[in-house]
Simulated scan of single mutants.
Amino acid sequence: MSSPNQTLVQAAGCVLWRRSPVGGELEVCLVHRPKYDDWSHPKGKLKRGEDPLAGALREVAEETGYRAAPGAPLPTVRYEANGRPKQVRYWAAEAVSGGFTPNDEVDRLLWLRPSAARVRLTQARDRELVDALLNTMRLT
């Protein structure tokens, strides 16, 4: 466990989704980060004083190249990263425009159906966010 004097790392991200341009099915965006060799949802650390939702949308744009329309808040995820406590706030967000260009932070991007996204995600905590997205979409 982390010691109480360690600063909580504040981050934010989105479970980015779209309707498939081919068949209209729901697809979830996953990003591959070569530094960690993992598949995850777009997310990142907040800048000092940055609003969490604004930070989440900024990270989506930086990592995926897409502008997103925010939707329902999703569960906040807490875990330890590099020996420090980290808290990531998430929102559902629909990709509305843009396109992916590989960069230093993210070298690959996939649009997958939710069942395939669950399998591809590296961390179990990220799989739960796919379920949370589906639950919020059933309610709307």
Rank of each mutant, 00 (worst) to 15 (best):
S3R: 14
S3N: 11
S3T: 14
S3H: 14
P4D: 04
N5D: 15
T7C: 03
L8I: 11
L8A: 06
V9M: 12
A11Q: 09
A11M: 06
W17H: 14
R18D: 01
R18C: 03
S20G: 08
S20L: 05
P21D: 04
P21Y: 09
V22W: 10
L26Y: 10
E27C: 10
E27T: 13
V28T: 04
C29Q: 00
V31T: 12
V31W: 05
V31Q: 04
H32Q: 06
R33A: 12
R33L: 12
R33N: 02
P34I: 12
P34E: 03
Y36R: 12
D38E: 15
D38W: 12
W39E: 02
W39T: 10
S40N: 13
H41G: 01
G44L: 05
K45L: 11
K45W: 02
L46T: 08
D51Q: 10
L53A: 10
L53C: 12
A54M: 06
A54V: 14
L57R: 02
L57H: 10
R58P: 09
E59H: 15
A61V: 10
A61P: 00
A61H: 12
E63Y: 01
E63A: 10
G65I: 13
Y66V: 07
Y66A: 05
Y66L: 10
R67Q: 12
A68W: 00
A69P: 00
P70I: 09
P70W: 06
A72V: 11
P73A: 09
L74A: 04
L74C: 07
P75M: 07
P75N: 10
V77D: 06
V77I: 15
V77T: 11
E80S: 14
A81I: 14
N82G: 11
R84M: 04
R84K: 13
K86Q: 11
Q87T: 14
Q87G: 08
V88C: 13
V88N: 06
V88Y: 01
R89G: 02
Y90S: 04
E94I: 04
E94Q: 13
E94Y: 06
A95R: 04
V96Y: 03
V96I: 15
G98V: 08
G99C: 05
F100D: 02
F100M: 06
T101M: 07
P102D: 07
P102Y: 08
P102H: 08
D104A: 15
E105M: 13
D107E: 08
R108D: 09
L109H: 05
L109A: 04
W111T: 09
R113K: 11
R113I: 05
P114Y: 05
S115H: 12
S115C: 07
S115A: 15
A116N: 10
A117V: 07
R118A: 00
R118F: 05
R118Y: 01
R118V: 01
R120I: 03
R120F: 00
Q123D: 11
Q123R: 15
A124N: 05
R125P: 00
R125Q: 04
R127V: 06
R127E: 00
E128A: 15
V130P: 03
V130Y: 01
D131N: 13
N135C: 04
N135Y: 08
T136I: 05
M137F: 13
M137C: 05
M137L: 15
R138G: 08
L139D: 03
